[in-house]
């Protein structure tokens, strides 16, 4: 592997980025996925600011206007929804809520699950047992039922939907973290660090977290997709994001009422969810290959062949 044997230069950061892009270029699917995600992120950041009014402008005469024509204006290229609003504008504006909820839910689940997992794995028998039993309870709790219960008690706003989704995902991170911590604990360097008098927190921060984090991030990429779908299922049951707020999931759920007469209402947001989850999965597959020393050659070989 030539890359590994090259000496380090002065700007290691820049080199790594260059190298990552090269590796990304090695997997065209992943490259397209990354581009797509960048566009989605751009829309999530600036969409509501650019098109917020257009996405909520009502025109009952354009109800369910079909896609594929710009006679009504470019914003109706994907058609209009049941209240005659531009589907394109709504897709773009909804990307903020959609991505925001998914990202926040996953981050929250990862943070809580990771912390609890560290404690369970590191803090000894009793806290560990209690935390694990709590995780079992949460895992065996039917997740839609849990979501309904919580959302019946608290109103189904953006914040609560996000918290509910996070709660249902916590056990995954908790168990993964604990399993890794249990293994790491016994490894030599931790034992050595402890022998040298390092405190528990210091060991966790310096030695354990850097090893656990990559695994959690890989899971998070896939979870992101899962959370978007779960949010959509909540909307199907009527407890997801409520108007006037909207997400892709809520758009699909509302559009399903029109699948027999105006398929485009549910099709485009469905496609957006699908493409985004697909892109995330492709990218995380790529990341797994790229960070695995025994597999990385696949990307590099392709690169040479094509380049």
């Amino acid at each position: 592997m030539p890359a590994a044997s090259e000496p380090a230069y002065k700007e290691p950061g820049e080199r790594q980025v260059r190298r990552a892009i090269l590796l990304l270029w090695g997997d065209r699917f992943a490259f397209v996925a990354a581009l797509y995600l960048l566009i989605v992120i751009f829309f999530a950041l600036f969409g509501p600011w650019l098109l917020g009014d257009m996405a909520t402008a009502l025109n009952l005469r354009l109800r369910n206007a079909p896609p594929g024509s710009i006679d009504l204006g470019w914003e109706f290229i994907l058609g209009a929804d049941a209240l005659g609003r531009s589907i394109l504008a709504r897709l773009i504006v909804a990307s903020r809520n959609t991505m925001g909820i998914a990202a926040a839910a996953v981050a929250l689940a990862m943070l809580c699950g990771g912390t609890l997992g560290l404690i369970a794995g590191y803090a000894g028998k009793w806290p560990g047992t209690i935390i694990m039993r709590l995780a079992d309870i949460l895992m065996s709790f039917p997740s839609l039922l849990l979501a309904l219960l919580v959302l019946f008690v608290f109103e189904p706003g953006v914040k609560n939907v996000m918290i509910v989704l996070a709660i249902t995902r916590i056990p995954i991170y908790l168990r993964t973290t604990r399993a890794e911590v249990l293994e790491i604990r016994e490894r030599m360097f931790v034992t050595a660090a402890r022998a040298m008098g390092a405190g528990s927190i210091r060991i966790v921060v310096r030695h354990v977290i850097p090893i656990v984090a990559p695994t959690l991030i890989t899971i998070a990429a896939i979870d992101f997709a899962f959370v978007m779908l779960a949010e959509s299922a909540l909307s199907f049951l009527g407890v997801g994001i409520q108007p006037p707020e909207f997400t892709w999931g809520a758009m699909v759920a509302l559009g399903r009422n029109y699948l027999g007469s105006a398929w485009w209402l549910a099709f485009w947001p469905g496609l957006a969810i699908m493409s985004t989850t697909l892109a995330l999965n492709l990218l995380s597959n790529w990341a797994r290959t790229a960070t695995d020393p025994t597999q990385r050659w696949r990307l590099e070989v392709t690169d040479k062949q094509n380049g």
Binding site: T56, L58, L60, A82, L83, F152, E155, G238, V239, Q242, P243, P244, L254, N257
Partner: peptide, 27 residues
Amino acid sequence: PNSTEVMEAMLAMLQGIGLNVKLQMLE
């Protein structure tokens, strides 16, 4: 049928005359 749509439409109409209206859909 279409109860959510009609509430969204009326929300926009009431906002149109300058009222400070907020919509909430409950189960």
